[in-house]
C-alpha cells in the first residue's frame, strides 16, 4: 500500500485547499523544461485535469494507483504520456511533468510543519512515484506501438513491384533484407505476377548491402515458387562481394539466370520473348 486511507484524505485536502497556487506552481516548474514545445495554455489544462483527478481519487480513499478508485487518474496519466510520446518528448521530460508536483507539495507542507508532516510527505511521495512509473510505462508502450507501426509502413514502402515491360515485372530491393521483409517481397512479387499476367520477374539486388544464407534461401524459394506458377525469375545486380559470399556460403543458384544489371536482365528477357515470336512469325510465313 502506498498510503493509508487517512493519508489519502489529507492529501485530498491539501490538494484542494491550495488548488490555484498548486496548479500554478506546478505549471511553472514544468513549463521551463518543456521549452516552448507545448503551449503554456495546453500544459496548464493538462495540469488542471491531473490535479482534479488526483483530488477525486484521493477523496475516494485511494491507497494504491492500481486500485479501482485510480481508474480515472490512470486514464488521465495514460492520455498525457501518449500525447507526449507522439509529440516527441523524452521519457524523462514526460515523467518530470508528474514528479514536479512533489516539490510543490513539499513547499506547501513546509509552510505549516507539524509532527506528521514528514510521514505524510513520504506517503504522498510513494503515490506520486507510482504515478510517475505508470506514466513511464504508458510512454514506452506508446513508443513501441509507434515503432511497430513505422516498421510496418516501411515494409509497405520499401517493397515496390513495378511492371517495366509488357509481361515483365521488377522488384528493386533496397536495404537490408530480413526474414519478415523477404517474405513480404516474395508474396507481393508472386501476386503481381498473377495480377499482371507477367511470365517474367526480375529481382534486382543492387541496393542490398549484404546477403546471408537466410536471405539467399528466401530469394531461391521465391524463384522456385514463381516457377511452380509458370513464371521465370532473373536475379540482377549481384555485386562482387555478394557473389563472393554466395560462393563462400556454398549457396547453389543452380539454373537460375543471374545478370549483372537490371538492363542486362531486361535485355535477356526481351531476347527470350523476341526469339519466340520471331520463330513463330517465320513459321507462319512458310
Amino acid at each position: 500500500m502506498a498510503l493509508s486511507a487517512e493519508e489519502s484524505g489529507r492529501l485530498a485536502r491539501l490538494l484542494s485547499e491550495h488548488a490555484d497556487r498548486l496548479t500554478q506552481r506546478w505549471t511553472e516548474r514544468v513549463g521551463a523544461s518543456l521549452r516552448g514545445r507545448l503551449s503554456q495554455a495546453e500544459f496548464a489544462r493538462q495540469v488542471q485535469e491531473l490535479h482534479r483527478s488526483m483530488i477525486d481519487a484521493t477523496r475516494n480513499g485511494l491507497t494504491e494507483l492500481s486500485a479501482e478508485q485510480g481508474g480515472e487518474l490512470r486514464a488521465v496519466l495514460a492520455e498525457l504520456s501518449r500525447g507526449r510520446a507522439r509529440q516527441g518528448f523524452t521519457a524523462t521530460e514526460t515523467a518530470i511533468s508528474v514528479f514536479a508536483v512533489k516539490d510543490v507539495l513539499l513547499e506547501l507542507m513546509e509552510e505549516s510543519p507539524d509532527a506528521g508532516t514528514l510521514r505524510d510527505f513520504v506517503a504522498f511521495s510513494a503515490l506520486i512515484d507510482q504515478m510517475g512509473l505508470f506514466t513511464f510505462e504508458s510512454f514506452v508502450r506508446t513508443r513501441e506501438s509507434l515503432i511497430a507501426d513505422q516498421a510496418e509502413q516501411l515494409l509497405e514502402l520499401s517493397t515496390p513491384v513495378v511492371k517495366i515491360w509488357e509481361g515483365v515485372v521488377a522488384v528493386p530491393l533496397v536495404g537490408t533484407l530480413d526474414s519478415a521483409r523477404a517474405q513480404v517481397v516474395m508474396e507481393r512479387l508472386l501476386q503481381t505476377l498473377v495480377d499482371t499476367g507477367s511470365p517474367y520477374a526480375i529481382i534486382d539486388i543492387t541496393g542490398v548491402p549484404a546477403v546471408d544464407t537466410q536471405v539467399a534461401q528466401h530469394i531461391l524459394k521465391t524463384v522456385v515458387a514463381a516457377r511452380l506458377m509458370g513464371a521465370d525469375c532473373i536475379i540482377s545486380g549481384i555485386r562482387p562481394q555478394i557473389a563472393q559470399t554466395i560462393v563462400a556460403l556454398g549457396i547453389e543458384f543452380g539454373d537460375i539466370a543471374t545478370k549483372a544489371s537490371l538492363a542486362d536482365a531486361l535485355r535477356h528477357v526481351l531476347r527470350l520473348t523476341g526469339v519466340d515470336s520471331a520463330r513463330r512469325h517465320q513459321r507462319r510465313e512458310s
Binding site: 508474396e187 508472386l190 524459394k221 515458387a225 514463381a226 511452380l228 506458377m229
Partner: peptide, 8 residues
C-alpha cells in the same frame, strides 16, 4: 501464390 509458397 500462397499455394506455390506452401509447395516449396
Amino acid at each position: 501464390p500462397a499455394v506455390a509458397i506452401t509447395l516449396v
